[in-house]
């Protein structure tokens, strides 16, 4: 069973149950996993690459489908004006799966609490923006290059032109103040 990454699958019901209201959206799931792996160093072994909607790895959605098949989580479609989303809640086998990954969950429980507490109130668009800022920061500062927040904001704006550079900079400053970014103010 270890081959099926149960420890990683166990993150899904754990994250959902700790989220506000006991559920999370799919964008939240994707970006939580990204932030946990990238910022907190949780070894999830995903491979995120950038899209216009931020860092993404289809394996996260594959894990979601697997967890759904195991009834460890259940997903409900929600429609709203101009779009739709998904509400992910723990399923009837959530505890069973969490027990199978309990060592992993125990080791990283502080990180799970961190991501849910820090970003739980963000909208999905804000999470896409935060994920993109962190992605750009990681890429730009790789190889120990010195980069400032204005450069990060400019690059993020080019990827996501529907956010003004000033808006991006505002979010980048907040993230830098919390030591989530490597770039300097």
């Amino acid at each position: 069973m270890a081959e099926r990454n149960e420890w990683r699958l166990a993150m899904l019901p754990a994250l959902a149950s700790k989220s506000k209201g006991g559920y999370m959206g799919r964008t939240a799931l994707m970006k939580y996993m990204y932030l946990l792996q990238t910022v907190r160093g949780v070894p999830l072994n995903y491979r995120f690459t950038l899209y216009s909607y931020g860092p993404f790895d289809s394996d996260v959605l594959s894990d979601l489908s697997t967890a759904e098949a195991l009834e460890a989580v259940k997903t409900k479609l929600e429609l709203y004006a101009g779009g739709y989303g998904y509400r992910i809640k723990p399923g009837r086998n959530a505890k069973w799966l969490e027990r199978r990954g309990e060592k992993f969950l125990a080791r990283y429980s502080k990180d799970i609490d961190w991501v849910v507490k820090k970003f739980g109130a963000f909208t999905s668009a804000e999470l896409e923006l935060v994920g993109t800022i962190v992605y750009v920061d990681q890429e730009a500062t790789g190889g120990r290059k010195r980069v400032d927040l204005e450069q990060i904001a400019k690059l993020v704006h080019e990827v996501k032109p529907h956010f003004s550079q000033a808006k991006v900079l505002q979010y980048a400053r907040q993230l830098a103040e919390q030591s989530i970014l490597r770039a300097s103010a």
């Binding site: 950038l50 899209y51 216009s52 890429e139 080019e158």
Partner: peptide, 19 residues
């Protein structure tokens, strides 16, 4: 192709390559 921010504006089209 690799999904880097350095792709800038054209990153939108990445869904045509891998999406």
């Amino acid at each position: 192709v690799e999904g880097s921010a350095k792709a800038r504006q054209p990153i939108f089209w990445r869904d045509l390559i891998d999406g």
